[in-house]
């Protein structure tokens, strides 16, 4: 019974963890009040780096060595971080919906570039990416520590001076500036950390899916990740994690419903957004509990 359960849902469980981590990459800029939808762009970049490295530079016949996977994650994260600095400094001068539009444009530019390069395999993409593990579930050994590390890092960050600076900028950028918080520095920092997380998740996901193509970093993906954060809750680290896991699992949980499952899925999302505008996990829920005690 265990065997069939883990065989059937092993992939989904790891995918939930990966998507939850990806949700954090969008949540971080949001803590500094920046509505950035650039995560899928960095996610795609990290994936392409892993896919290209493992199929060309480190091509192996047998199992792909795990240290190389970790190295790819590092490379993916660093490359995404560098690109984020280059993109972030000018883009973060924009606010609100204009920043969102600029980041959508960024994702589109990356997508069109990857469609046109030969190294990324054009529209078909890169396939036959070497596998470091024998089953989908074993990817948990890399995915789960990454999620835990990111959650701890983000939670600690929020408690630190930098985290409070993020919140100050989110609540009132002008006032924060007047109090001596450097808005540009902190906004770019939040954006870069988010990008690095997305790049690392991309590197794992490329191996995990066994193939990588331009359909991974699209506008649709941006909206999906935004939904993870909004439905989960955008005011606490746990929010995007729960949102990412739940929304990834929901279509599969609803599989027995049959053809209308995506309609039910959409209905549940709408219901969640209407009834819980703060998201599933909001600080208010925790505060009220404390009062009761």
């Amino acid at each position: 019974m265990f065997e069939s359960f883990f065989n059937q849902y092993g992939f989904l469980m790891v995918y939930m963890v990966l998507q939850a981590t990806l949700a954090l990459s969008l949540y971080l800029p949001l803590t500094a009040g920046q509505l950035s939808l650039a995560s899928p762009g960095f996610f795609a970049l990290g994936g392409y780096i892993a896919a290209v490295m493992s199929t060309t530079v480190w091509a192996t016949n047998g199992m792909f060595p795990i240290p190389y996977l970790l190295l790819e994650m590092l490379l993916g994260g660093l490359a995404s971080g560098l690109l984020a600095v280059v993109v972030g400094v000018p883009a973060l001068r924009l606010r609100g919906i204009y920043l969102a539009l600029a980041t959508i444009a960024f994702v589109e530019i990356l997508r069109v570039v990857s469609l046109n390069l030969t190294i990324t395999g054009g529209a078909v993409g890169i396939f036959g990416i070497p596998q470091p593990f024998n089953s989908s579930l074993e990817y948990m050994w890399v995915a789960l520590p990454l999620l835990i590390a990111c959650v701890i890092f983000t939670a600690r960050l929020e408690k630190s001076r930098i985290g409070r600076a993020f919140v100050a900028i989110r609540e009132d950028e002008l006032a924060a500036d007047a109090m001596g918080v450097n808005p540009t520095y902190h906004k770019v920092l939040a954006f870069v950390i988010g990008a690095m997380i997305a790049g690392m998740v991309g590197a794992i996901t490329a191996h995990f899916l066994n193939t990588w193509n331009a359909r991974q970093g699209t506008f649709d993906a941006s909206i999906n990740i935004l939904a993870f954060v909004l439905i989960g809750g955008s005011r606490m680290t746990l929010g995007p994690v729960v949102g990412g896991m739940l929304l990834t699992a929901l279509p599969e949980i609803l599989r027995p419903v049959g053809d209308v499952r995506l309609i039910v899925n959409g209905f549940l999302l709408t219901l969640g957004a209407v009834l819980l505008p703060q998201g599933l996990i909001s600080p208010r829920v925790f505060k009220r509990k404390k009062v009761d005690v």
Binding site: S4, F11, E252, R255
Partner: peptide, 14 residues
């Protein structure tokens, strides 16, 4: 891609 993998897992194991 993820949807295809999930569907295949269901076919194979369930």
């Amino acid at each position: 891609e993820a949807g295809a993998i999930n569907a295949f897992q269901t076919q194979i194991n369930k």
